[in-house]
Design a binder for these strands. Structure first.
Lengths: 153, 153
DNA sequence: GATAAATCCGACATAAATACTCGGGATTAA
DNA sequence: TTAATCCCGAGTATTTATGTCGGATTTATC
């Protein structure tokens, strides 16, 4: 019942990207360095984010990544789902029409799983990347000159 | 980001126990059979539930398990935490006084983790075992004579 | 055109967690 | 005494998580 490093690192990386992008693309190396994440691993994560259409890449020297759309339009849920797959705590098909789980009609725990899944979805979809970026800028301003943004979670 | 079989099976087992207990204790074999869970695995799960004080055991022939307190006083959160450990999606100590995570003061993802953790906690702690039992009885009444309560999730 | 800086891609490696299984000991009703 | 139970720790197979690596491709710059 834990978010993996993909989700944790990936979200931090995307906040970092949003924070450090001006016109040019931001390269993996610089994000990896600031966020203390291995370059090759981060490469994988960016691949996932690109496939999900959240960032676009610029190849070749001087290349890197940019947000594919404004941070206002990217939810934390978008990011985490791109990295982790669906965020359901239990993949219970009881409420789908396609392939409902065997015995779903006499199962009561499905109500529990649904409540948990809904709660998670509501939480992650109601936070936009832009809010994190904004908050991050506020914090950076008040910590002028302090150490880089490193957090293991 | 998935609940393991411990949580899933264990909650079903506990609903089953609550549903099938009269005066006597209910043995693992019967729960395992009705719920289609391996006996030896279920034994492990019941051990965890007992250590958490949610069930009590009666040893010897004719023994088994009983709820240690009324189903009204057992939340789904109690059950899942007994089986899975804490249910935090991210073990981020940023909001604790003890051992706060390095760099917590300049970390923004901590707000995300907190919202997710709170959402999960709220969801699981607001559902009581008694509600599941009640709902289960209602369903069983309307499915008179149908197959046993088997669901893989 | 050569070079260097980047992304891109798939495959591999290791470690950790999950999901069980098993054998034997302890307790107790009949 | 026997059989039905729970109790407990250890072991095992499988899957998932967490990276690493080598090389291909693209592109700005000299």
């Amino acid at each position: 019942m834990k978010l993996s490093t993909k989700g944790r690192y990936g979200l931090r990386a995307l906040v970092d990207l949003a924070l450090n992008c001006r016109e040019e693309a931001v390269c993996i190396q610089s994000i990896a360095h600031r966020q203390n994440i291995s370059e090759s691993y981060l490469e994988q994560l960016m691949r996932l984010l690109r496939k999900a259409g959240l960032v676009r890449s610029v190849r070749g020297a001087g290349g890197g990544y940019q947000l594919a759309k404004p941070a206002e339009n990217i939810s934390v849920g978008d990011v985490l789902r791109a990295l982790e797959g669906n965020l359901e705590a239990v993949d219970c098909g009881a409420f789908q029409k396609e392939h409902p789980c065997e015995g779903a009609d006499i199962c009561v725990t499905k109500y529990v799983w649904k409540r948990i899944n809904d709660a998670i979805r509501q939480a992650v979809d109601s936070i936009m990347l832009a809010e994190l970026v904004e908050e991050s800028r506020r914090i950076q301003d008040s910590h002028q000159g302090t150490v880089a943004n490193v957090c293991s979670k």
